[in-house]
Design a protein around this nucleic acid. Structure first.
Length: 596
RNA sequence: GGGGGUGUAGUGUAGCGGCCAAACACGCUGCCCUGUCAAGGCAGAGAUCGCGGGUUCGAAUCCCGUCAUCCCCGCCA
């Protein structure tokens, strides 16, 4: 080893020891006759001192080095002189007196500062990701991610789970997200698909009798990006045999609760055990199936008060089968016209045709877009329902139910963040259960599975499949963390006949199903144990734990918004020979861009 | 596919029709300096204001287009 200690490990107990260090120059403070170098490696930073008296010729070398040069240093750990200790630094009691200094590698001046947490344009960070990863923030995040995954592996191992790898080259499934396809060289026109998740494979492992499987699985989906969505992402994938819904839920809750206690004891969890909401309850109270429970501002149905109120917008919505709902933005009665316009524009992007308001100032007359149409007793009833006090601002959307829920749910999160209604360090988990098994797809005029097509219905709801499929609940469960969908799973169908009824229900011809899932259906005929599982997004979990605004900050080499790797320049144009091998011809599209 | 924001030295920003052959901070280069730790002092280099076109007597500044990037909608079983 080129070093005997990590820079950040040195303490008073090392005083007097002859040691070797190797690392990067974090900072140089040159006083002419005396030169300080902060030497950095993954373990931290320690001050190194060179002067002509103790370091001889190496003092000159020390004066010549620059930030990010790679050095090896031999020297003695000294107690720092009285008054020169640095309480800010874990190694601040000591310093290393240089006896020998070797430049292992000089460095160009980096495009941005490595040694401080300055804001840098993300494109530059991604282009020089290897330098960005040298910075404290990213090292901290990667360590956090490692610890999270290590904890999961250790704990599941102790609980009898096997970690089993599944193929990256697999079979395309037209349902769901767009697949990444890999053309086959050996079979013209045929393709592999990268898995959107190991869903089918883990169920087959249950058929195989492995009973308890998990994997830290890379998943691929060729859809447009978001701050919390990358083309490839990592899931904790779990599947268990001979379990019921409660068993899987208990496993994941214990796993995460234990992890937080063990790795993040300082982080406050809002409630344990995690609250449970049924899907209808989540929809009704928060307008979404991934409610952020860190704050209130629940949606209140005021359709009954809106009907026949005299305000045509409200009346019309209710009369045509829609709803009127409202939220109470506490203390926001002072919002300006401009601010209200902004909120209106905000909900408009989710389909709301308008945003009615009733502002109740501390003093003076209420301001409202509709109050003049309403009788006093109706206004009073509205105030009462929304528990409005002087200073509050009530915001109403009247529309189709789906639009009302969506736009108010979004408005609620928007306001929650904007008004700082919660402690951003707080962790608020909840379960959402009892999802409808299938949802009506208006465009295609058919029933679509709301989770996936192997999800089992609740036993007591099976009879509904025939005539009221929309009312049948699935044995599905989602974990929501601070408004982010963090995990989701279900008990699967292990009965061939029931599986075929589901195919029938969602309009999947049995022949088509056989083509796509024949291996599954056949497998299920050979003694399938009842089984279920869950999958949890590691990137989103780590993002929340690291308190980062997007998952790129917890991924070593992420793609940008346009799904490009700006460091390596991927994707890039294929060599003509490679295309020929793959039996491919480019018939359309822009020629490739030069790599960044 | 659509909407919005941003683009000015290496980095972060200011300037938003003439006072700008562009300012500040950090970084960088050189010199001075033996107790600093965001070291300090002095001197200096570094930008055709993303790109193209237009309006104007005059454009970093206004308009159009384009590219890049971020956020969002659609999409993501």
């Amino acid at each position: 080893m080129l070093k005997s200690h990590g820079c950040g490990e040195l303490r008073a107990e090392h005083i007097g020891q002859q040691i070797r260090l190797a690392g990067w120059v974090n900072r140089r403070r040159d006083h002419g006759g005396l030169t300080f170098l902060d030497l950095r490696d993954r373990s931290g930073v320690v001050q190194v001192v060179a002067n002509p008296g103790t370091s001889g010729e190496f003092h000159t070398t020390a004066a010549d080095v620059r930030a990010e040069w790679v050095l090896q240093i031999e020297g003695i750990v000294r107690l720092r002189p009285e008054g020169m200790q640095n309480a800010e630094l874990p190694t601040g009691q000591v310093e290393v007196e240089v006896h020998r200094l070797q430049v292992l590698n000089p460095a160009k001046t980096p495009p941005f500062l490595i040694n401080e947490e300055s804001e840098v344009d993300e494109m530059v960070r991604l282009q020089y990701r290897y330098l960005d990863l040298r910075r404290e923030r990213m090292q901290r995040n990667l360590v956090l991610r490692h610890k999270v995954i290590k904890y999961i592996r250790d704990t599941l191992d102790r609980r009898g789970f096997l970690e089993i790898e599944t193929p990256i080259l697999f079979k395309a499934t037209p349902e769901g997200a767009r697949d990444y396809l890999v053309p086959s060289r050996l079979y013209p026109g045929e393709v592999y698909a990268l898995p959107q998740s190991p869903q089918q494979l883990k169920q087959l492992l249950m058929v195989s009798g492995l009973e308890r499987y998990f994997q830290i699985a890379r998943c691929f989906r060729d859809e447009d990006q978001r701050g919390d969505r990358q083309p490839e992402f990592t899931q904790l994938d779990v599947e268990m045999s001979f379990v019921e819904r409660e068993d899987v839920m208990a496993l994941l809750e214990e796993l995460y609760t234990g992890m937080l206690a063990s790795l993040f004891p300082e982080r406050q969890v809002q409630a344990t055990p995690w609250p449970r909401l049924t899907y209808p309850e989540a929809q009704n109270r928060f307008g979404t199936d991934r409610p952020d429970l860190r704050f209130g501002m629940e949606l209140k149905d005021v359709s009954d008060l809106a009907a026949g109120s005299g305000f045509r917008v409200f009346e019309a919505a209710v009369a045509s089968g829609g709803e009127v709902r409202a939220i109470n933005a506490k203390g926001c009665a002072g919002f300006s016209r401009r601010e209200l316009d902004e909120l209106t524009q905000f909900v408009a992007s989710f389909g709301a045709k308008g945003l009615a308001y009733l502002a109740l100032p501390e003093s003076g007359e209420p301001r409202s877009s509709f109050a003049k149409f309403l009788a006093t007793d109706r206004l009073e009833a509205l105030r009462a329902r929304l528990e409005a006090e002087p200073g509050d601002l009530l915001l109403f959307v009247a529309d189709r139910r789906a639009v009302v829920l969506e736009s108010l749910a979004r408005l609620r999160s928007h306001l929650g963040a904007r008004l700082g209604l919660y402690d951003s360090k707080l962790l608020s988990f909840c379960w959402v259960i009892d999802f409808p098994l299938v949802q009506w797809n208006e465009q295609e005029a058919r029933w679509d599975p709301s989770h996936h097509l192997f999800t089992a219905p609740l036993p007591e709801d099976v009879h509904l499949l025939e005539h009221q499929p929309g009312r049948a609940r699935g044995q599905q469960y989602d974990v929501v963390l601070n408004g982010h969908e963090t995990a989701g799973g279900s008990i699967r169908i292990h009965d061939r006949a029931l599986q075929e009824r589901i195919f029938q229900l969602i309009g999947l011809e049995i022949e088509t199903a056989k083509q796509r899932f024949g291996h599954m259906l056949t497998a299920f005929e050979y003694g399938t144990p009842p089984h279920g599982g869950i999958a949890s997004g590691m990137d989103r979990l780590c993002m929340v734990l690291a308190q980062e605004p997007n998952i790129r900050e917890v991924i070593a080499f992420p793609k940008n918004q346009a799904a490009r790797d700006v460091m390596a320049g991927a994707p890039s144009m294929a060599e003509p020979g490679a295309l020929r091998d793959l039996h491919l011809q480019i018939v359309d599209g822009r020629p490739g861009r030069p790599k960044g």
